[in-house]
């Protein structure tokens, strides 16, 4: 796979920044609380590289499970992506139980709570994807959300170890609740190429090999 220029990476970051901003606004409306976003980081990593990156972002010694809300999208323009919303399990429980006004002390998420979390993730992810679809003037059909609770080490077990993944990572934190989550977009090589082509078009970047138009 070819490497991307700094200009391309910046454009990619901006595209995700726009779409994730929409998602955060939606999330903020759901939980009726201000959500702070970190600056998105865009990286191209292997599956294991991503796992290591996620492990290193956890507090030392924590073996906290993560709640992963996953939707698969197919864009008519030819790329596919898995959009993943990640929250620490206790944080997800806090969101759901707060929304449902329930403080029952059950350690793990229940089936109905998991369903509610799927719906919340679904709204956030759909909002993010709709803004990408709008930007690219394409259509993206999405699967139903799937919620899983896993340790970081086994979080991406369903991906191929040799997969190259475009990771757009943005931190969302609810200041009032000391809770932070991540949004990841996982794409394979052809999708990355395709996605980048659309980003380039959007931002009028020069084609690879062309000199940039100044």
């Amino acid at each position: 796979m070819r490497s991307f220029s700094e200009l391309e990476m910046d454009a990619l970051t901006e595209a995700f920044n726009l779409s994730l901003g929409e998602a955060a606004a939606t999330f903020s409306a759901i939980v009726r609380e201000e959500i702070e976003l970190s600056v998105p980081t865009i990286e191209i990593l292997s599956r294991d590289g991503l796992t290591q990156r996620l492990e290193s972002s956890q507090p030392a010694g924590a073996s906290e499970r993560l709640c992963r809300i996953n939707q698969h999208f197919n864009a008519a323009s030819g790329f596919q992506t898995d959009a993943l919303l990640l929250f620490p399990e206790h944080g997800s429980l806090e969101i759901v139980r707060r929304m449902l006004g329930d403080d029952t002390p059950i350690q793990h998420i229940t089936e109905l709570e998991q369903d509610a979390l799927a719906e919340i993730g679904n709204i956030i992810i759909n909002s993010c994807m709709s803004s990408l679809a709008n930007l690219f003037k394409t259509e993206m059909t999405g699967s139903l959300p799937r919620v899983q609770s896993r340790t970081v080490a086994s979080l991406l077990d369903d991906k191929d170890a040799s997969d190259v993944i475009l990771v757009a990572r943005i931190g969302m934190s609810m200041a009032a609740h000391n809770l932070s989550g991540f949004v990841l977009f996982i794409m394979d090589v052809p999708s990355i190429e395709n996605f980048m082509a659309q980003v380039s078009r959007l931002f009028h970047l020069p084609e690879p090999g062309e000199s940039p138009v100044l």
């Binding site: 929304m99 369903d115 719906e119 059909t141 999405g142 959300p145």
Partner: peptide, 12 residues
């Protein structure tokens, strides 16, 4: 738009 959605019992 071709989107999927879940309406959970907890919220609806």
């Amino acid at each position: 738009f071709g989107w999927s959605a879940r309406l959970s019992h907890a919220l609806h």
